[in-house]
């Protein structure tokens, strides 16, 4: 296979783009897609202070690398979840990456916050992924808010977004369908920081190729608690659809943004829950006490009962 642009031997085949690229042209293509993604939804500018959430996986590291390369004002945030045989390795990867590329890094330890994920898992007695996601999002927002960042960026890619959209659609979850997209606006009082996903146009295969070609060492061991997660199952379904109908993933997502989301957003404006500050931590929530503070209290109660 030859590179679509320069006719050298291709290194990356992309049926969904009806293209193949050599290493150099692929890197240009990737940058072009990130810039297009930022521009299309006006995600941020060079004036913004951007906090980039780094898990240690290929997507977040690739995002950080590319934003730094493009001259944005970026700082890394890593949430140490305290999961045995996983979090230590992920944190080491992030620390090594930031040291190598001279990046500022903030680490937030969930054990120190009274929320080590193994304890949360033991207390909840239900699939941990949604609670873990809730806790991470809470601290992404909280750190960004407390440290004066104007934007929070995550490495969610097209596959993540399509799997999430698919899941939201299966449940007809109008609240989530009303605001899913590459950008989630900040709250007027700035308690919710603007959240963006600059890799929304790129598949995880594309970010993996990019990370490999940039020499990024990423943490690729899966989370030990994620086995059987429906999110992974939905990704497999979409991989099969994409193989049969190349390009359908991006079409599905873009058409949702253009035609689907506005309808759900309008409905949610009438029926949606009002946000208020959590009575414990002050972060926005639709309940008197936010979900994360409720989890923390439940863990503390259980610890007291045992002693």
């Amino acid at each position: 296979m030859k590179c679509t642009r320069c006719k050298a031997t291709a290194a990356v085949a992309l049926p969904s783009r009806n293209s193949g690229f050599c290493e150099s042209c692929f890197l240009d293509f990737f940058t072009g897609q990130v810039e297009k993604g930022i521009r299309r939804h006006q995600l941020f500018s060079h004036e913004d202070r951007i906090l980039v959430a780094l898990s240690g996986g290929k997507d977040s590291l690739a995002l950080m690398f590319e934003l730094k390369r493009l001259g944005y004002n970026v700082t890394a945030l890593h949430i140490d979840l305290a999961i045995p045989r996983s979090s230590e390795d992920a944190r080491a990867v992030v620390e090594a990456f930031c040291a190598k590329h001279d990046l500022k890094l903030i680490v937030k330890e969930m054990a120190a916050e009274g929320l080590p994920i193994p304890m949360v898992k033991a207390r909840l007695k239900r699939p941990i992924c949604s609670a873990c996601g809730k806790i991470k999002r809470h601290y992404f927002n909280r750190v960004a808010h407390e440290e004066g960042f104007t934007v929070l960026a995550t490495g969610h890619n097209l596959d993540d977004e399509v799997a999430r959209l698919f899941s939201n659609t299966l449940r007809w979850d109008t609240a989530y369908l009303s605001d899913q997209g590459p950008a989630l606006a900040a709250a007027q009082d700035h308690s919710f920081i603007r959240k963006v996903k600059p890799l929304w146009r790129l598949s995880e295969f594309e970010t993996a190729n990019y990370a490999f070609l940039r020499g990024i060492d990423w943490h690729f061991a899966p989370c030990p608690y994620s086995r059987g997660a429906s999110f992974t199952f939905h990704k497999h379904i979409w991989a099969a659809i994409e193989e049969k109908m190349p390009g359908r993933k991006l079409d599905f997502y873009q058409n949702f943004l253009e035609r689907g989301r506005p309808v759900f957003a309008a409905a949610e404006e009438h029926n949606g829950n009002q946000l208020r500050p959590c009575d414990q931590c002050g972060m926005p929530t639709s309940q008197p006490t936010c979900g994360v503070c409720r989890i923390r209290a439940a863990i503390a109660d259980e610890a007291k009962t045992k002693t």
Binding site: G57, E204, F212, F220, P222, C223, R227, T232, H236, A239
Partner: peptide, 8 residues
Amino acid sequence: VRVVTSRG
């Protein structure tokens, strides 16, 4: 062969 589908 490096499988790249993330699993959480």
